[in-house]
Structure formats: structure tokens, C-alpha cells
């Protein structure tokens, strides 16, 4: 670079960067500390003793209605979104390595899905399912199908419209990561596999997949965490049920005790655990690879 010595510019920028990191993490650290408030403590400092009181209260489910159901729902939804995001993104990534009709259009739709305001997507999905419900109900009446007339209320739900809403948010990220992965991918491994007589599926399963596996952890990380924390697209798309972030948002106006910090700490802890597990997994795979050389093509992993 320009100067080998670290001049005042470096220290100014380093200071700025340090303050930015403090700005990013400071508030989060505050609520983690405050979630250990004593039973008499309030929403702000000073700490009134240190205790697990608010966590106990949270686990007992007092004051917070149905939070554990929402918790479980969000976790299941996050896992499903995670798996679907990885599988669908890998397939789409493979497709985009070759020319196909509509590729440009599909790409622009994916980008649009990322930047169209979430409230518009959410409203749209809500409307779509309402119209669908009306159509199904009137069909049921017209054709006299009793099951629909009696039992059908709505097609909206966490794992139908809600799942779709989350995928419109996670898939563009997944696709962009896949582009980055396949941009760096050396196709000669595949050619070698094919020359040795591997079928397309064998080539994918034993050559391509092991090579891209560590990066797929990143795609999965996006899938889970973006869904776990998703709120803007969920609001009109979940039907009658709430996800955890929706419950949390509701609590911001009603709960006035550190219990909400305890819940925040717990949710953040889960986010951080998922991130840590993903990083550990990625590093482990890298290390194993460095030790053994590339195991691509050996059919392990």
C-alpha cells in the first residue's frame, strides 16, 4: 500500500471502525446484561441485583401468552425454510450454469423479490390467499362438496402462505450465493468424472456436492436465520397464528418488565448458536480437507 507505516489516517479510521462495532453490539450487550436483573429491577439501569428471575418467569410462561408455541413454530418454520432454501438454490444455481430460455427474466424476478418492499409482498400474499379461499368456498357451494362447505376455513397458514413469504426473502440470497460459488467452481473436476464414466447424478453426488458443501452451510445459515427473525413479510401472510418475531413485536407495546429482555437474550442466543455451529462446521470441513487433501471424488463426506 501507499505507506507501510500506520499513519494518523489509519488510527482515525480504526477509531471510527471501533465506534461502529460498539454501536452495532453495544445495545445488544445492554439487554443481555439487563435480562439478568433482580426481581425488583426495571427496564433500565441500575441493576437491582443479579438473578435468573426473568428467565424463570419466561420459562414458566407467566405474563407472556403462548410464547413457547410461537417459539416452536418459528423454529420448525426456520428449519423447513433452511432445507428448502439450500435444495432449491442449488438446483437453480446448477440451472444458471447453462443457458436456458427465461434465465434473464428469472434472475430479474429474484432480484425484484429481494427489493420490492416487504409490506407489498405480504399484502399480496394475504390477498392471494383470501381470493383463493373465496374461490374454493364458492366452488364447494356450487358443486355441493360437503367437506368444503363444512370444514374449509382458509388455506392461509404458517406452512403454506407463511412458508412461501419467507422463501421469497431467503431464495434470492441463496441464489446470489450460488452464483458466487459456481463462479469459483473449477469445471475440470466434473469433466474428469464424466471422462471416467460417471453418470450426471454420480458426478453431482460425488464430485460437485462435496466441493460446494462448505459453502452450502452459508446458504443454510441465511435460510434459517432470515426466517427465524423475519417479520415484515410475515405480518399478513401467517393467517391466524403468530411467529416468534410477531409475538415479540406485540410484546414491545404491552410488556414493561425485563422479561422481554430475557426473551430477547434467548432468541439472540439461538441466532448466535446457529451462526457458531455453521462456522464451526465450515472450519471443520476445511481442516479435514487440508489434512487429507481434497476428498472430492472419493465418495465420502
Amino acid at each position: 500500500m501507499h505507506s507501510e507505516k500506520r499513519g494518523p489516517a489509519f488510527w482515525f479510521l480504526a477509531g471510527f471502525f471501533g465506534l461502529y462495532v460498539l454501536f452495532l453490539y453495544g445495545p445488544m450487550i445492554t439487554i443481555v446484561v439487563l435480562s439478568f436483573q433482580g426481581p425488583q429491577g426495571g427496564l433500565t439501569f441500575p441493576m437491582n441485583g443479579v438473578s435468573l428471575f426473568w428467565f424463570e418467569k419466561l420459562f414458566a410462561g407467566v405474563g407472556v401468552v403462548d410464547i413457547w408455541t410461537a417459539f416452536g413454530r418459528s423454529f420448525r418454520l426456520g428449519l423447513i425454510v433452511c432445507i428448502l432454501t439450500v435444495v432449491i438454490s442449488v438446483m437453480a444455481g446448477l440451472a444458471f450454469r447453462r443457458k436456458f430460455r427465461g434465465a434473464g427474466l428469472l434472475f430479474y424476478v429474484a432480484i425484484a423479490s429481494l427489493i420490492v418492499p416487504s409490506i407489498v409482498v405480504s399484502l399480496g400474499i394475504g390477498l392471494e390467499f383470501r381470493i383463493l379461499d373465496d374461490v374454493i368456498k364458492s366452488l364447494g357451494n356450487a358443486l355441493g362438496i360437503e367437506a368444503i362447505q363444512r370444514g374449509y376455513t382458509t388455506g392461509m397458514g404458517i406452512f403454506t402462505s407463511g412458508l412461501g413469504a419467507h422463501l421469497t426473502w431467503t431464495l434470492p440470497f441463496g441464489l446470489l450465493i450460488m452464483f458466487a460459488i459456481f463462479n469459483r467452481f473449477n469445471p475440470s473436476y466434473e469433466e474428469a468424472a464424466r471422462d471416467l464414466g460417471a453418470t450426471p447424478w454420480q458426478t453431482f453426488r460425488h464430485v460437485v456436492l462435496p466441493i460446494i458443501a462448505p459453502s452450502l452451510i452459508g446458504v443454510g445459515l441465511f435460510g434459517f436465520t432470515l426466517s427465524w427473525d423475519e417479520l415484515a413479510r410475515s405480518s399478513q401472510a401467517m393467517g391466524a397464528q403468530n411467529t416468534l418475531p410477531m409475538s415479540l413485536q406485540g410484546l414491545t407495546t404491552t410488556v414493561t418488565t425485563p422479561e422481554i429482555y430475557a426473551l430477547g437474550t434467548l432468541t439472540t442466543a439461538i441466532s448466535f448458536s446457529v451462526i457458531a455451529i455453521c462456522f464451526a462446521a465450515a472450519i471443520l470441513v476445511q481442516k479435514r480437507r487440508a489434512r487429507r487433501g481434497s476428498d472430492a471424488g472419493k465418495g465420502v463426506v
Binding site: 437453480a92 444458471f96 450454469r97 423479490s113 412461501g164 450426471p200
Partner: peptide, 29 residues
């Protein structure tokens, strides 16, 4: 990149899931 599969239709079924999801939960809405 070389073809993952020899079929020229491969990109279509590979891109189908993402296209269907964007159609159902983004374009139609």
C-alpha cells in the same frame, strides 16, 4: 461451465422449483 447432465432440458427442471415459488408467492400476489 460444462453441462452437469447431458440433457438440454436439465436447466428447466432444475430452475422449475425456484420459478414456481416466485410465481406463486411473488408474481401472482
Amino acid at each position: 461451465a460444462p453441462a452437469l447432465t447431458t440433457s438440454k432440458y436439465a436447466p428447466y427442471w432444475q430452475a422449475a422449483p425456484i420459478a414456481l415459488i416466485f410465481a406463486a408467492f411473488f408474481l401472482i400476489p
